[in-house]
């Protein structure tokens, strides 16, 4: 990932900054600048998600790309945040612990690094909250 691409997404990656349509109340992550329901009547504002949610579904990655091969096997899940938006993120637990419906909360972790000398990509992962 280029340095500028990572930098542009820091608000979302670090602090789960998404958006909300104040007209209909829907939350969006990643942030949308346009509400597909309200269209031109939609009022979009920034919203920081609280970081609590549950696992909708998950998979276990056992054969990963170079940046992640040191951490296999790891759990990659679709997490439904309590406000209603879904996102894909790692859940820090063993494959045996993971289950659909598990309550999780967000934590700040190292996601990947651009080699030994490149930028370190920090961001949000989830841990079991039960």
């Amino acid at each position: 990932m280029s340095v500028s691409r990572f930098w542009r997404k820091i608000p979302q990656r670090y602090n789960l900054i998404g958006t909300q349509c104040t007209t209909c109340g829907r939350y969006f992550f990643p942030p949308r600048s346009f509400c597909p329901e309200c269209r031109r009547d939609g009022e979009i504002v920034d919203y920081q998600f609280k970081g609590d949610g549950e696992i909708v579904t998950y998979t276990v990655i056992r054969s990963a790309s170079d940046q992640f091969e040191n951490t296999t096997p790891y759990v990659l899940a679709i997490v439904r945040l309590d406000e209603g938006a879904d996102l894909t993120a790692q859940v820090v637990c063993t494959p045996e612990e993971a289950r659909i419906g598990m309550r999780v909360r967000s934590v700040f972790r190292r996601i990947a690094a651009d080699g030994e000398s490149g930028v370190i990509h920090y961001g949000t992962k989830f841990v079991p909250a039960e």
């Binding site: 040191n70 951490t71 820090v92 934590v107 700040f108 972790r109 190292r110 996601i111 370190i120 920090y122 992962k125």
Partner: peptide, 13 residues
């Protein structure tokens, strides 16, 4: 530390 924890993640938490 976990594999994805370092001084920055500890300081943030």
């Amino acid at each position: 530390p976990d594999l994805d924890e370092d001084t920055a993640t500890i300081a943030v938490e």
